[in-house]
Design a protein around this nucleic acid. Structure first.
Lengths: 131, 131
DNA sequence: GTCACGGATGACCTTTACGTAAACCTTGCT
DNA sequence: AGCAAGGTTTACGTAAAGGTCATCCGTGAC
């Protein structure tokens, strides 16, 4: 519970990102580090958000899409209209992810088949080489 | 079996891409349409490749990564070294996809939870409004 | 012939997600 | 005082994946 606040460098080492990236995310309003003088200090909340950001990226979501999803996490503050809208967006994302998951199954299957096939060819070539 | 060859426009309509995209993919050596005079004609092979390209993109692979994977499909021609290398690349992709799938499960679960939570908040606000 | 149309080519434009470089604090040694 | 380390801002650069003209070419319709 000690280091509840982390410097930019600690963040970089923890999450394997560059300072530039963290500043960039702040500029894009994805993170909201507090300031000690002019230095940034990242909170537990920032770390949670960053984790989700990085995951979102791995799924090909844009930073802007991710930003909207992140709003879900502190949506308690907003107005009803805004909250409703955010939920709707999140639902759409969820649907998209379901579709993506299904497609992923197909793709994994096909890629595996393709690798198997290529390996049989490779064995054929070995035999060929031996001849 | 008639129109084994398709014009660029037929391709665009079929796959919902622009001509620019198809020409771009050709420039990047992802597609290899044949020529009738100066016009491009896309083969069944091109269509198969395009399908895989579009799927790859949905998973966040870069065109360059996709290009390397596509080699698996006509890898029969290549030399052993090359084929071995391609298979290795494909394996890495497959591993990546497995990890992605696992992570996707987590993400779907979390997003769903988050939506549920937000909806409970929303109901709370309704009650509040009624007061 | 010529006019419209589909397609081709080349050049430059745009957006996203940062990288990189320059110049400036501030803080802790020494 | 002096200076190196770590951080900051500002600004320009870049790679990927196309979009958007402008211009040109070949062909069938009239």
């Amino acid at each position: 519970m000690t280091d509840d606040l982390m410097t930019i460098r600690q963040m970089c080492d923890t999450f394997e990102v560059t300072p530039r990236t963290l500043r960039f995310y702040e500029a894009k309003e994805l993170l909201f580090p507090i300031r000690d003088g002019q230095k940034r200090l990242f909170t537990r909340r920032d770390r949670a958000r960053l984790k989700l950001i990085l995951r979102g990226k791995r799924f090909g979501f844009s930073l802007e899409e991710i930003r909207q999803l992140l709003n879900l996490y502190h949506a308690g503050d907003g107005q009803r209209r805004q909250l409703t809208r955010t939920i709707e967006l999140a639902r759409q994302h969820l649907d998209g992810m379901h579709r993506q998951r299904a497609e992923m199954e197909t793709a994994i299957g096909e890629l595996r088949d393709q690798i198997d096939w290529a390996e049989r060819i490779l064995k054929g070539k070995s035999a060929q080489d031996a001849a």
